[in-house]
């Protein structure tokens, strides 16, 4: 197995950029309103707390996938295979995933849970990424999977406001997928429905 980890290819500058990105993070108006409304959950009884617990599990699963997407884009951005303006696009999409991850982690905390930590290392099939198209194809796979993951999570979230935020993230990731497909010369929107 000749795979590697994002840490192996992550430069100090990239790491600094990642951290400064967090500093610049701002929640969307929807997320702010949502998160403000969650404060009372710390005070409520067992029924709502149990519901919040279910949602914490779901949000943490989404958070883990977002953290992995951030790491994957880092591998792509530092691979030397992406040329501008595709490189800028990848960095922008990574920024979106960072915003998703921060919003999800903040919400998990507000619900009384512990946000899942990013892994110390991720393993990606870097030996198969030899061209810009390979990187874009890999990113498109992840984004397509993310759309399905959110589609599978939204119906089981107990809090409908959280479901709205998850749907908002789904929309963003579906746009990523479409743009990546377009960049690969594929029909950007392959079908009327996504599952």
């Amino acid at each position: 197995m000749s795979s590697t980890t994002p840490q192996a290819s992550t430069t100090t500058d990239a790491r600094r950029s990642f951290l400064s990105g967090f500093g610049k993070f701002t929640l969307s108006a929807t997320a702010v309103a949502l998160l403000a409304g969650r404060d009372r959950l710390a005070l409520v009884g067992s029924a709502e707390a149990k519901t919040a617990g279910n949602d914490v599990t779901i949000l943490n699963a989404a958070l883990a996938a977002e953290q992995e997407a951030i790491a994957a884009y880092q591998v792509g951005a530092t691979s030397g295979l992406l040329q501008k303006p595709v490189l800028d696009l990848a960095v922008q999409f990574q920024g979106h995933h960072k915003e998703h991850a921060t919003a999800l982690a903040t919400t998990v905390k507000k619900l009384g849970g512990t946000p899942v930590a990013a892994k110390a290392k991720y393993t990606f099939p870097v030996e198969k990424l030899k061209t810009q198209a390979d990187v874009l194809g890999f990113a498109a796979e992840l984004e397509r999977g993310a759309v399905s993951a959110y589609l599978g999570a939204i119906p089981i979230l107990d809090d409908r406001e959280l479901a709205k935020v998850a749907a908002s993230i789904l929309g963003d990731e579906a746009m990523h997928w479409a743009v990546l497909r377009q960049a690969l010369g594929q029909p950007p929107v392959p079908s009327a429905f996504v599952s």
Binding site: M1, S3, A61, A64, A65, Q67, E68, A69, Y122, T123, F124, P125, E141, L142, R144, G145, A146, S148, A149, G152, S195
Partner: peptide, 15 residues
């Protein structure tokens, strides 16, 4: 299986 690829792969652990 493409639906699974945000969290799984065949060869490597993901989330």
């Amino acid at each position: 299986y493409q639906r699974c690829l945000a969290c799984h792969s065949l060869e490597h652990n993901r989330s």
